[in-house]
């Protein structure tokens, strides 16, 4: 393997750097920044206060201007470091700003107003993580609801997907019956019918079933995924038929064969499908957007998109909630990445 690569881009004479080596590392390091950078920036921004978010140029880390309560003023005042005419530096609080001149007071002498050109002052800032970006949506908004809706949809849909698809895969891999090929073709053919093609009539059917504005209307259309049947069937084909014969001789019913023999032995494929299903359902957007129109039913994705589309976007909340939405997927990525990548490489399916 490595030789293949070495041969395609091998170092001439193994001494010094060939241009391909340079290119490789430029590409990789560049990739590292482009792929991870945006997400890291998002996480960093999500801890900034609204004021810090509005700043340009932005800072890398979240800072806030220190404030001090000064006698005689109701609100806490921003603190600045001021270079005085004599060259010394001191910390003053800004009362108000008129043009390029700022009226400031020393916290020690609240009555004495000092006028300073704004070029001669810099805000006194400390790093501060605005965790309220996270806590407030949980307490004041419907965010917990959205989170719960997303979790409910993801877990339920995944469980049903696993059961329904593994049953179908069992029938299609271990039984001979008339119409088996037809059923298989039918399932594969539905790969050609993505949601975007059938969303209009699907909406009318879901409505007719009374599932409009119902989380089950989000769940049910997604659970009979052809990909799932396909992955599981391929795997079950590798389970020896003699095992099933043996179980039949052992007086097992067909249901027991499915439940006690086939399912445990298909565990690795079920795990792959489960991971995929969790990611798919967690990330689903267009269909929930169509089916759910009542706020309290929104999933995270729909809620986020609706709030971010509002005229007055509250970016500090949006960013924080985006991070929360990312967390399960990032966890999957960190712990199960190898599982997924081999799953994709093995089946070529997403």
């Amino acid at each position: 393997m490595s030789r293949v690569a070495e041969f395609i881009f091998r170092r001439r004479g193994r001494s010094g750097w060939h241009w391909t080596d340079v290119f490789t590392w430029v590409w990789l390091i560049g990739g590292l920044f482009i792929m991870f950078g945006p997400a890291v920036w998002l996480v960093g921004s999500s801890f900034k206060s609204p004021a810090a978010l509005a700043e340009f140029p932005p800072t890398i880390m979240p800072y806030v201007t220190q404030k001090a309560t000064v006698e005689g003023y109701d609100k806490p005042l921003d603190l600045y470091e001021v270079t005085m005419p004599d060259g010394s530096k001191t910390v003053l609080a800004e009362v108000r700003r008129i043009g390029i001149v700022s009226q400031m007071v020393s916290p020690d002498k609240p009555t004495e107003i000092v006028k300073v050109k704004i070029a001669e002052r810099t805000p006194v800032r400390t790093m501060s993580f605005a965790t309220s970006n996270y806590s407030e949506p949980f307490t004041h908004f419907d965010f917990v609801r959205y989170l719960w809706n997303s979790v409910f949809v993801t877990v339920t849909a995944t469980l049903i997907t696993l059961i329904v698809n593994s049953m179908a895969a069992f029938a299609l891999s271990k039984y001979e019956f008339r119409g088996r090929t037809f059923a298989m073709l039918l399932i594969l053919a539905t790969l050609m019918v993505p949601l975007s093609v059938i969303m209009v009539p699907l909406y009318s059917i879901v409505s007719a079933l009374g599932l409009f504005n119902n989380l089950w209307g989000v769940i049910l259309p997604t659970v009979a995924t052809p990909t799932g049947v396909f992955i599981l069937r391929q795997y079950m084909l590798t389970i020896p038929d003699e095992l099933i014969d043996a179980a039949r001789m052992d007086k097992a019913s067909e249901w027991q064969i499915y439940w006690r023999i086939i399912l445990p032995l298909t565990a690795p494929a079920l795990a792959v499908l489960a991971i995929f299903s969790v990611v798919w359902r967690w990330n689903d957007f267009l269909w929930p957007l169509i089916v759910l129109s009542r706020k309290e039913l929104y999933t995270l994705q729909v809620g986020l998109s609706i709030y971010s589309g509002e005229l007055n976007v509250q970016w500090h909340f949006i960013l924080a909630m985006t991070v929360v939405t990312m967390i399960p997927v990032v966890l999957v990525f960190i712990f199960l990445q190898r599982f997924i990548t081999t799953g994709i490489a093995g089946t070529g399916l997403k």
């Binding site: 020896p240 003699e242 179980a247 097992a252 445990p264």
Partner: peptide, 27 residues
Amino acid sequence: ADRGLAMVFQSYALYPHMSVRQNLAFG
């Protein structure tokens, strides 16, 4: 299942996810 016979298979067809004891007990 109802013929009262037992079979030993060429590949043995032991249930790979069960212990030997569970294999014997299953039937």
